[in-house]
Simulated scan of single mutants.
Amino acid sequence: MRSFRWPPPPDGGPRTWGPGPGAPRTGRPALPEPDTELVTTPHGVRLERLVTGTGDPVTVFAHGLGNGIATTRPFGSGVTGRKVFFQFRGHGRSDAPPGPWSYADLARDLRAMADLGGASRAFGASLGAGALCRLLAESPDRFERLVFFLPAVLDRPRGDAARQRFTALLDAVESGDASAVADVVSVELPAAVRNTPAGWAYLRQRLDQLLRDGLAPGLASLPDQIALADVGALAAVTAPALVIACAGDDLHPVDVAERLAAALPAATLHVYDRPGVLWTERADLRTRISAFLNE
């Protein structure tokens, strides 16, 4: 079994032992980083934003903890209309106002990006799904269609695995050690992908962003936060919703997705049979999301 190591082979590897072809090997490259802008929100926090596509409707995309625009862009590849991607406070080039921060703060960031962009549809992944839940509890009729990908938290704090993983990522980013960051980020990849050209491309992109922009210390308390005091508040949300989960994902338990789907009156739940679906079920996932949002 090949082991993971950093830095990557100079020709894009991976390397294998024994005789075999030695030419450079390539895989699907990570999406190039586009030019983004800093937008001042009504609550005074500047957030990094990228707008792609043309026309209506408009969909806002909210990322997960420690992630950002680059990791949410693939979800919108088949979605029609304009797409608004942004970085929550403490991520990328977005401001990091004095903390501690709560899901109410994240919901405020999400609402500002949706309002400024004129979004009528919303997608939330992990942390972004929690922020979207908080926004909907306050404004249940804000969006016309909703997608929740790997929801991680509702009215109960996240488990020890999530806290430990994010603490390790914060510590590695703070150290500035690329190898340490790569060790933590590589866990995001399915084992079969970690030593492939596509896996290396993903790692390079994540490391470039994390080591360049960092992560604000104010994010450290978020794994201990809850998104909602009472999931019953979501009963007033009448917009059609798609909730997506993966069996075997310790950071995003299926029971959270099941409870969310049960709380939303017009929700459809889809559970993949294994984690890492962005790698193992990429085409199906993108088609499922775009078909739902484009209805």
Rank of each mutant, 00 (worst) to 15 (best):
L207S: 09
A229Y: 08
H252R: 11
G214P: 09
R204N: 11
A201T: 10
P223G: 02
P265F: 03
E258K: 14
R204H: 15
D250M: 09
A216P: 00
L234I: 10
P217A: 01
A235K: 15
V271A: 03
D224P: 04
A235D: 09
S221T: 15
L207N: 08
P275L: 03
A241Q: 01
H270Q: 13
V254D: 08
A229S: 11
V277Q: 01
H270Y: 10
L269H: 11
A198Q: 10
Y272Q: 09
I289W: 02
A233I: 07
A201V: 04
V237N: 05
L228S: 00
W200V: 06
A261M: 09
I289D: 02
A241G: 02
R206V: 06
A236F: 07
A241Y: 00
R282E: 08
G276D: 06
L278C: 09
V254A: 06
A262H: 13
E281Y: 10
R259V: 08
G248C: 05
D284V: 11
V231P: 15
Q225I: 04
A229F: 04
P265C: 07
A201G: 14
A235H: 10
L251W: 03
A198T: 14
V231R: 14
G276L: 13
L278A: 14
R288A: 09
A241D: 01
Y202G: 07
C246G: 03
S221G: 15
V231F: 02
R288V: 12
D208K: 05
L234K: 13
L269I: 10
W200I: 06
E258F: 10
L269S: 11
A239F: 09
P265E: 05
L219Q: 00
T238E: 13
Q205L: 14
R204M: 06
R259H: 11
D213W: 12
W279V: 07
V271M: 02
E281I: 05
V243F: 04
P275H: 02
P275C: 06
A245E: 04
H270V: 14
T268R: 15
L251K: 01
A245F: 06
P240E: 05
T238Q: 15
R212D: 10
A198S: 09
D255P: 05
A247P: 03
G218H: 04
D213A: 05
D255A: 12
R212G: 04
A227P: 05
A236P: 09
A239N: 12
R282S: 14
D224C: 08
A227H: 02
P217R: 04
Y272N: 09
R274P: 03
C246E: 15
P240H: 09
Y272S: 07
G218T: 13
G248T: 07
P253K: 01
R206K: 13
W200Y: 15
V243E: 03
A220W: 01
P240M: 11
T287H: 14
R206E: 10
P275E: 03
